[in-house]
Amino acid sequence: MTAADTTADTTIAVTRGAGRGKQTPAGRTGRSAPRRRALAIPHIILAAFIVYFALPFWWLIVASTKSQQSLFDGKTSPLWFASHFDLFANISALFNYSGGLYARWLGNSFLYAIAGGLGATVVSVLAGYGFAQYAFRGRRAFFAIVLGSVMVPATVLVIPLFVMMSAAHLTNTVWAMILPSMLNPFAVYLMKVYSDEAIPAEMIDAARVDGAGELRVFGRVALPLLRPAIVTVLLLSIVGTWNNFFLPLVMFSNPQLFPITVGLGALQSQAQVNTGGQALWNLVITGAFLSIIPLVVSFLTLQRYWQGGLSIGSVK
């Protein structure tokens, strides 16, 4: 049995388990007094976890409403609002900083994430379906390379990519970021495992007997069945590109092309040096706060897809 077979088995177990969340075994509903006391300790531990994981967010929200001065003057607690609410002043200062550079960074992040994410998804869906449905010569070796490539460290690739891109005069262009982001071997793996499970062979055969060509089978039969996994892979690829730091750090020296991760990093080091006495810390903090809103909101609203994707991922 190969690794891929094993993992496929586990996937079924996981997907089957997904529906079980709400079902409560009889014993768990019994709420006698000792039972309730037994439940108190786990809830206290969970509460401690919440404090730990949420505290940085709370601090960031609070700090982004403070001016540079009230950040430092020590008059109010770092965990509570100052008398003066400066969030909107900070936001407008942030968007006016250096000719609207911050908006530019946000826009770049959206562009790279969506272009790279869409590209990676299209390529991965096609490849995953191909690996799952067709027994072509070289498939095993090809798929082994896909699995192995998950283990290749980013640095090993980024250094030669930089040399190649600068030879092709592509550094400091959006392509230096978008094109390499279209490579997502893990997404191919997820799509292959999901296609194995979600597309019944009889359905494909029936479509073929009815005279549908391979492209038609893919478009009309397979794609609708794959939709949940496609959404998951799209989200994972978009977030992967959005979060990327190393690649854009190396590829771009022009601040106009920075994504938000590199941009904020640069702004922070500038605040550190603080040339010209400009108030920058409040901008870095407000910038960090605004930049995490899109992803946090998408995580909270699209929870179902995240968990679906991560549980497919869990069996790798």
């Binding site: 299209v122 390529v123 991965s124 096609l126 490849a127 379906y129 191909g130 690996f131 449905q133 067709y134 027994a135 072509f136 010569r137 498939r139 090809f142 390379i145 896909v146 490539s149 290749v152 090993v156 690739l157 030669p160 990519l161 190649m164 094109l179 390499p180 279209m182 490579l183 071997p185 191919v188 391979e214 893919f218």
Partner: peptide
């Protein structure tokens, strides 16, 4: 004939894997 379709579906990924992983490596 179907095997050829297998390569067709995986070809775009093969190109990207080649250009952005194998060649750099």
């Amino acid at each position: 004939r179907r095997a050829r379709w297998g390569w067709a579906f995986t070809a775009p990924f093969a190109v990207i894997l080649l250009v952005f992983l194998i060649v750099p490596l």
